[in-house]
Design a protein around this nucleic acid. Structure first.
Lengths: 164, 164
DNA sequence: GGCTAACCTTTCGACGTCGAACTATCTGAC
DNA sequence: GTCAGATAGTTCGACGTCGAAAGGTTAGCC
């Protein structure tokens, strides 16, 4: 009897108030936004246990999985932040010795952001636990649901233009 | 061949690098987080056209759909922010005349946050467009997918304890 | 009745993001 | 060659959130 979430409650409230509204989309989007906050909190907890911030892992892992070095611009796009925020992140990762700014041959406007050995080790030490943590977060879904969920979210992302 | 999203790309990169990792959960969670940013951006655009911030609508709509007045604490929980951030939001909504702080009969620790007529009108003027905007955001999904998505997200939310 | 612990809101300082302005570099057209 | 416009990254100020501490209020217990 506990298969109602918080969103169901507020959909009911709207339905009682305004019978003219089509609430379906609101429920779905409300759930995406709430989940992102909830999931983000769990990720934060995991990384905090390992002395880092989610955004740090985010940058380091992006560099790690990319064979070739990324420019600042590509990196910012990949983690979905603006260039100003990226400058800030890189500053701090450089200060921690996890990353280095390198010139791009043939284009002095751009910068390559490169993992240091230390940065690389840090990612490699923490990915696995991160994966386990993510599996725990999704533990409430069975295999079919998990697969359907990924597929539908992919469709939605593509329809919104999220293709790299 | 365009049914791949950005997440597919980085899953492939990880797969090429570390065959030992189980990447399924990472894909799903990556998609939830990316979607939330993308969707949040679209919501922001809509509200900006109407001279308000998403967080303003969020608070006002929560009050609107709740018949009975909410305490600051309940309100904060409902919109998933901390009490400090709520104090800040209420301050600004009071300054705009959209909301008022009222004493709670019989408990001087709490406060009721009440919509003013103006606040109520603002919500009522903007909900409908907000609904249409949300439908546009989900336009890339067919009815079955939309229904499945809502159901699975609900299951996940419930499993993470999001029951008001 | 008076103390202690729990509770609710506000204040404070730190943090991370954003958009806009700025600097430096590159491109293409003439 | 040079000059206008595009492009890359940084700086700046404003904004919104957070956690921790503080302030005021209430409930429970002896």
């Amino acid at each position: 009897m506990r298969d109602r979430d918080a969103v169901d409650d507020f959909l009911d409230q709207w339905a009682a108030l305004r019978t003219d509204l089509d609430l379906g989309a609101m429920g779905t989007i409300g759930r995406i936004l709430r989940l992102s906050r909830l999931v983000g909190g769990h990720l934060k907890d995991y990384f905090a246990e390992h002395g880092m911030e989610t955004w740090e892992f985010d940058v380091l892992a992006t560099l790690r999985r990319n064979g070739t070095p990324l420019t600042a611009k590509e990196l910012a796009a990949s983690v979905m932040i603006g260039s100003a925020a990226l400058t800030n992140r890189i500053d701090r990762l450089v200060a921690r010795g996890l990353v280095a700014r390198e010139p791009v041959p043939g284009n002095r406007r751009s910068l390559h952001i490169a993992l240091t050995d230390e940065g690389r080790d840090l990612v490699d030490r923490t990915v696995e636990g991160h994966m386990r943590n993510q599996q725990r977060i999704l533990a409430g879904l069975d295999d079919d649901d998990r697969e359907d969920l990924s597929r539908i979210l992919r469709t939605l992302l593509v329809s919104l233009g999220d293709t790299r």
